[in-house]
Design a binder for these strands. Structure first.
Lengths: 191, 191
DNA sequence: TCATTTTACTTCAAATTTTGAAGTAAGTTG
DNA sequence: CAACTTACTTCAAAATTTGAAGTAAAATGA
């Protein structure tokens, strides 16, 4: 097992006890670092990360779904809600929205249609360039986002308990951003 | 903008220059930390993370798709390949596989059928419990995984250039695992 | 200036992925 | 051994994603 991981993975000395990337014993949410400092060799390949990301993404989607059900939202799903969150509080074009989420054009078009039908967004043709649609949340759209953010507050409090947590979240975010760039460039120009 | 982020987010002092969670200027893959040390206030909400995770997941899926196309794999898609990677080199039951990826039963059943039809896995009824299917990669399945891992080697080398990178990947991995647990428990027991 | 190309997006149909309800067969329990 | 639970499968419907083709406006260039 370790043998296999070492094949393409890279080693790092770390201070987390008994925690290997490849299998997931039931670890509690309790802090594990900064208590003992035995040094272990742990390996994270980009595939391990990709699998983790897939799992976490699935988890979040279903969480979002249940939260939306609680809110009584029936006309749009979690994917559409993510688009709303991507729009945020600014007015932007479809193209800008594509960049924000690496969506495919036809996909976003489809979602925007549903969101417009549901009254969550306004769509106006730009003055400058009439090809370009300007998108913005309606009152209803902003309300949904606000409700979801409120519901999310509890998670933020659990996930970010102290400075260490915050730093780790920050590092995770940056590292994911790097993955995004590397994988994205690779897809376009080939590694 | 910052105002909004502060709403539900939590602050942290960090040493990354000019990098805010909410918008994505074209940052290069070059290192940014450990050069200058101006202190900024950056915020990562769990929604920002969720959106990032969604984007990265999308990127990886399309990368995997192109890699599989290069390999001439036509009978299964990236989702099925992820299942293969989840199985890895051990023999396990469908239930264990569900845990590994937070899949839904009927979904995995569907994938396993395709993978079995394609000759990527073997499925044998357990001796002990004939309800339980034991799953394992075939030669062909292992070959595909090995090819994908080989193709992935280049990414590992780009992503893990030095000890700092490795540490950050490790932290990202652990942090995602924590998200997984928190979001998963919340879904089951409500925060 | 006006044909040509490019950009910005939409539409539609098909493929893929995911869900959920309903099954089946094998174990377990009272 | 009847009733229940577990471990999975099947199927149909829904949601999501892709890709090819279309439209209209803007930019380009001869």
């Amino acid at each position: 097992m370790i043998q296999k991981l070492l094949h393409e993975g890279v080693e790092v000395e770390t201070s987390i006890d008994g925690y290997y990337a490849a299998d997931f014993p039931e670890i509690t949410t309790e802090k594990q670092s900064h208590r003992h400092h035995p040094v272990h060799t742990v390996v994270v390949t980009h595939f391990e990360l990709a699998r983790m990301i897939e799992r976490v993404n699935r988890r979040f989607a279903s969480l979002l779904r249940t939260e939306m059900t609680k809110l009584g939202i029936e006309d749009v799903g979690p994917a559409q809600a993510m688009v709303l969150m991507a729009i945020g509080d600014v007015e932007l074009s479809v193209g800008e929205l594509l960049d924000r989420g690496h969506y495919v054009g036809s996909n976003i078009s489809y979602y925007l249609k549903q969101l417009a039908d549901g009254g969550y967004i306004d769509r106006v043709a730009s003055q400058r360039d009439k090809r370009s649609a300007r998108i913005r949340l309606t009152e209803k759209g902003e309300q949904l986002c606000a409700n979801l953010r409120d519901a999310g507050g509890a998670y933020n409090r659990v996930l970010a308990r102290d400075a260490d947590d915050l730093r780790n979240l920050e590092i995770a975010f940056q590292t994911l951003h790097r993955l995004e760039l590397v994988w994205g460039n690779a897809a376009r120009y080939g590694i």
